[in-house]
Every structure is written in C-alpha cells, then in structure tokens.
Design a protein around this nucleic acid. Structure first.
Lengths: 184, 184
DNA sequence: TATTCATATAGGACATTGCATATATATTTG
DNA sequence: CAAATATATATGCAATGTCCTATATGAATA
C-alpha cells in the first residue's frame, strides 16, 4: 500500500481531513507524482487508523458535516521514517497512447495526427497544472531544505512533460511526411 | 481492460502463445510502454477468447506441454481497429521515489544520496534493456511504416530515461551541497 | 546427482484502483 | 427559483494488477 505512505508524508507536514487530502494535496501539490481517488483516500485513512498509524480529532460543525482531522501517531511517524529510507522500485510504465502508436501502422495519417494532437493538448494541460503547484514559502533553514527537495520533484515533472511535448512535435513532423498507408 | 488491447496489437502482428507474449513481447519488445504479469496474461487471454476476440490452435507436443497459439478473430480485428482510433487519457503518474524525495527533508544527506544512487542504477538498467529492443527488419513499404512508428515509441522511452538520469545527476549535485539537517 | 533453467498453462488470494452513488447543508451561479 | 458548486464522509462493486503456488518434462549447469 503505497498510497498510505504518501498520506503519511502529507500528514507529517500538516494534519488534515480526507477532504483536504484530496482537494488540496492530491489534486494540487503532489499531483505531479501521485494521484488518488477520493473513495480510496477515505478507505485508506480508515485502514491506517486501524493499523495505528493515525488518529483524528473530530471537529464539530453546525453548518457542514463534521471534520475528522487526522494526524500521525508515533507509530505512524516511525513507519514513515522507515519507509523513506527503503529503496523503491521504478513504477511500471503503461502508456495506452504508445500502444496505439506502436500498432498504428494500419491507421491513416490523419487519424494518427489527430491522436497526436489530443495527446499534445493533454500534456499541455498537465504542464499548466504543474505551473500552479505552490512552493512552500518562508525562509527558515529547515523549510529551505524541504523547499529544495520539493523544487527538485517539480523540476522532474516539468522536464518530463516538456520531453513529451518535444517528442510529440517530432512525431507529428514524421507522421506528416509519411507516405499514406496502402489501405487508404 | 487495457492489457487486452496491447495483446490484440501483438497478436495482430503475429499469432503467439501466452508464454511467447510474456517472454518475447512484454518482457522485451514492448517493455518500454507496457508490462504484464504472466498470470494476468493467461487470464486475459481466457477472457478475450470468451468475448470472441481470439481463438487458438492447439499444437500438440510430446516432450513439452501443448501450446495454445492464439490469433485474432474478425471481431478482435474490428475491436483493435476501433480502439486504435480512440483518444486515450494520460496514465496516472505514481512515483514512490518522488514521494520519498518530496518528504525526505528529515533524512540525512547520505541517505538521500544513497537513494538517488539506487534510482540511477535502476534507470540505467532500464536504458540498457531498451537498447536491446529489436526493430522490425526488412524494407517492405508497409513494414517501413510500422518500423517508423515503433522507432518513435522507442525514442520516447530512451528520451525519458535519459531525462531521468540527467535529473538524478542534478539532484545528487544539489543534495551533496545541502547543509546537513538539524537532527544530524 | 541435485539444482536450476527453459518450456507451457493455470488458479487462489489479495492489493490497488476506478467509477458510481448516497447523505446532508450552505452558498453561488444562471 | 432551479441548478450547480463547495464542504465533508462513506459504501458497493467491478476492473486491474501482483504474488505465490501447482503441474509436467527435458536440458543444462554446478
């Protein structure tokens, strides 16, 4: 369960509710390296609490549903520290679009170009999303260390997205000059 | 089920057994954009056959277990063609190592450097694997089209891996010059 | 000679993820 | 005034993916 370790990290910086984890954290500040479904977040919080990594304070609200503000227990903190030092395997690469391109020789050029265009739009949207990711502010030496590491992760996200866009442009150029396939 | 479309693509080029799909295709020629577990492949082949996208010839062997050589039906060919034209969403990015780096401010520099080193080794291994991916030979105009598209997918894989390595070197340089964290 | 490797298929159990839906209320937008 | 959006948590169910084990035999390796 790797989502739980992302959650441990997030809650170690700041106690939060499931709602905040989804809307602030996973959809914004860490979207370049982790995404999570809302239902999965709540279920994982539940399991982590059972395991003893988390507890929560119930904040009663009259106008809105009550909030469960989760924070790490000592056990959670220990697990985070242990995990942070553990070598991680590379994630599996599974790219539906590359499957299409690899097996797309039977498609007409126009179809390939349309698919390339759509991927371009998708990667541009990603890049725009990354551009909005906030960096931690203040210049406290401890925060500076954190900030440096965060900047590095964001740099990778941006670099990769730019590589995709460059590659997509190259693909478009190549496909545009390709003789049409026999079937056309 | 996206694995089934990768399988449709592979079998459209050449009828194969589950064993071949795993050992030749997924572990080698398409490893840069799709990986699959052996058991998942066999199970998916079973489902695809039920759905009517595939059938197989049973090749009896005396010394080894019999082979089921799968090939596409008309229905499978139609499904592949339909899917190849369908816009695909970007895959979710989930990178355990970036989680570590993002939340790794409490780790000593040495630990961070060791993790960076291990990731470097992993990405170098990936690149080495990609270098062994065979390109389709012969210069038939129809095959040339296929070859061009395949070369493009491989180019992306190589580009991305190189971006990672460049970034990892940058990270190593930055972390090496980082003041040690207060706890140390 | 014992062990591992290659060939070949398959099921059990579980973890992870994704999509839809339910509940409840306040505010904002059309 | 109706509909959508924001706040907040939660369940059902299916698809997808991972790990382990089982079965069977020949060839190569230690």
């Amino acid at each position: 369960m790797s989502l739980s370790h992302a959650i441990l990290g997030l809650l170690s910086v700041q106690p939060m509710t499931g709602y905040d984890l989804k809307n602030r954290a996973f959809d914004h500040s860490v979207t370049h390296f982790w995404q999570a479904d809302q239902s999965q977040i709540y279920r994982t919080l539940g399991k982590m609490e059972e395991t003893g990594w988390l507890t929560y304070e119930l904040e009663r609200q009259d106008d809105r549903p009550n909030r469960k503000v989760y924070h790490l227990t000592d056990s959670g903190r220990a697990e985070l520290d242990r995990w942070l030092r553990t070598e991680q395997p590379l994630p599996a690469n599974r790219e539906p679009f590359l499957v299409q391109l690899f097996f797309g020789a039977t498609l007409p050029n126009e179809t390939l170009l349309a698919l390339l265009d759509q991927q371009k739009a998708a990667h541009e949207a990603q890049l725009a999303l990354f551009a909005e990711i906030p960096m931690p502010p203040i210049d406290d030496p401890q925060i500076e260390r954190m900030r440096t590491l965060r900047r590095l992760t964001l740099q990778l996200g941006v670099t990769i997205e730019k590589s995709y866009l460059t590659w997509l442009a190259e693909c478009t150029a190549v496909v545009a000059t390709l003789p049409h396939s026999p079937e056309e």
